[in-house]
Amino acid sequence: MSPRSSLSAAPFLAAALLSASAIAAAPAPFVAPSAWMSALGQQVLAPGYAELARSSAALAQGIGAACDAPGDGTLDAARAAWRQTALELRRLAALPFGPALESRILRRLDFWPTRPPQIESSLRGRAAGTLQDERIGVTAKGMPALEYLLFDPARAPLGSDPTACRYAAWLADDAARELDAIQSTWSPWVDSLGETDPETEAALLSDSVNILIGGFDTLRVKYLEKPARKPTDRTGFDAWRSGGERAHLLALFDGLRLGLQGREGLPGLTAILRGRGLLALADRLDAQTEAVAGALQGLPPSPGEDGGAAIARTVEALAVLQGLLAHDVAEKLKVRVGFGDNDGD
């Protein structure tokens, strides 16, 4: 570049710098908790649960086909359908807001760890007519129970066990029915967010922050710390039977991250913070979220077998992130944390 051209570019450079500076200094738009929840409901949760209902119905059909025509092909198709459905569920499980919280749907579809004796007892009782459908409890239902029936290496294949196969098809169908039943509740919930008073906004913010803290606590303790207490034993890890341990951890984190950081056109908690001028705190959250993402990416596909050090790094990174939320964010947003170790009885 010649001196002349350099000189002639100076005004443009200065303008560009000024413009960048102006952008950096511009206050972020204020985001009300109701706007955050409304966007999440419309863009993520309502369509996500609709898709999950469809996937569950397809899973029921796939298992039905495997029951009608036992063979590797139909079983593989049913297993593929389970993998897709279970990952969708795991992403949504990170964000139990609105109807998902009130209906307890996730508790009914996602009981973990599985209790194989109860599943076996329920499927035999149902086949014998001694156990009515409505008396089959959540401990013998849901996606993890289906994984046991479809993938457990110590169990007879579904194709050779028609009783278990029919039970599995019913479980998937039951999940689809449960999911269908809440579809109509999303729209009224989103509508209700349009008319909020300050007290409701504060309650929404409290719930939302606590739900995110609870989600990170679940990822850290339930899905990493507890299973890792048995070194070299992978059977405590979510989705171990299908070999999906790492994928499930990442899916849960993806969901949490969406709630925390949002995406283009969808605010997250960090947008709430920036809208209140808490830019440095939002930046710290972003940085720690990246640290967690990096740690999770460093996990081997089957963390229970050879992931001890990587699990420890991930748990540590998650603990720091959870601490940021539970202490710094909660304090700045004046949210009372329901997961603290320093209050009440």
């Binding site: 508790r107 606590n210 739900i211 609870g214 329901g338 997961f339 603290g340 209050d343 009440g344």
Partner: peptide, 9 residues
């Protein structure tokens, strides 16, 4: 009433 998703809230 408290829920596991929201801790002690």
């Amino acid at each position: 009433l408290t829920l596991p998703e929201t801790g002690r809230v």
